[in-house]
Computed example of a mutant assay.
Amino acid sequence: MKRNLYGSIKAMPYTSGTAVDRQGYLSAVVSASVSAAGTLAVAVTECDTADGSFTAVADERVVMGRNLSNISVVNDELMAVELDLVGCKRYIKVTVTPGGSAAATYALVLGDPTHLPVEE
């Protein structure tokens, strides 16, 4: 029997710092591809509403044993960070800041849905 991966995730192109409604999802993966080697800083913030005041989420709460403020990246290599969103508020923003003058492209995948299959 084949598994339906797409029925258990919500994948989207992402703009750094955009509010995402994570209701019904317990985790996420943010990925980035950068135009130059260097470092990235990733920050996660949360809020009860999409347009409210977002507050920082401690790295220790969303990742285990990883410093999100200084992630080494290689030119054109896909970097991915798994985020545990259990306990986070309904809306999150993931802000990715490339070091130097590097440009980056992002994607966000919400996972561990509370209901299957996922409806778009």
Rank of each mutant, 00 (worst) to 15 (best):
L110I: 03
R61Y: 09
V109T: 12
D76P: 00
S27A: 13
V29E: 04
V57K: 05
S72E: 10
V74C: 07
A80W: 03
F54G: 00
D51N: 14
I71A: 01
E60G: 15
Y106N: 08
T97K: 15
D112F: 07
V29P: 01
L108Q: 01
G99F: 03
A56H: 04
K10V: 08
I92F: 03
S8P: 02
G24K: 07
V81N: 04
L40P: 01
C88A: 10
S53N: 13
V96A: 08
V109D: 00
G52S: 13
V20Q: 03
M1F: 12
G7N: 09
V63H: 08
D112Y: 08
I92Q: 00
L110P: 01
G100P: 05
A36S: 14
M79T: 15
E119V: 14
T49M: 08
A43Y: 05
G99P: 06
V34S: 01
V57E: 04
A102Y: 02
E60N: 12
A32C: 15
P113V: 02
D84E: 12
V94L: 10
G24L: 08
S27V: 06
A41K: 12
D112N: 15
H115E: 14
V81D: 06
L116I: 10
V62T: 10
R22V: 14
D48K: 09
I9V: 14
A19Y: 01
R66M: 12
V44W: 04
D48R: 11
T55S: 13
A19D: 01
Y91F: 14
T49Y: 10
G17N: 06
A37C: 04
V62Y: 06
L83F: 09
N67P: 03
L110V: 02
S69A: 13
V44I: 14
M12Q: 15
V109I: 15
M12E: 15
S101C: 03
V30W: 00
A50H: 13
I9A: 00
F54E: 00
V118F: 02
P117T: 11
P117L: 07
V109W: 01
S101D: 14
K2I: 11
S27M: 08
H115V: 12
V42K: 04
T97M: 09
L108P: 00
T49H: 10
S8Q: 13
V44K: 01
T105A: 11
Y6L: 11
L78C: 10
G52P: 06
R3M: 06
V20D: 02
L110S: 03
V20R: 06
K93L: 06
A103C: 09
K93M: 04
A50N: 14
T49A: 15
K93E: 07
S53A: 15
Q23M: 12
D76A: 08
A58P: 12
S101W: 00
S16N: 12
V29M: 05
S31G: 03
A50S: 15
D21C: 08
R66C: 06
Y91R: 01
V42M: 06
S33D: 06
S16H: 09
V30K: 00
T39Q: 11
P13Q: 10
A36D: 11
N70F: 13
S31W: 00
L26K: 13
L68S: 05
Q23F: 13
A37W: 04
V74L: 11
A36M: 07
G24A: 11
V42A: 10
L85G: 03
A58V: 09
Y25C: 02
D48E: 14
G100W: 10
A107S: 12
L26W: 04
A43H: 03
V73A: 02
C47P: 04
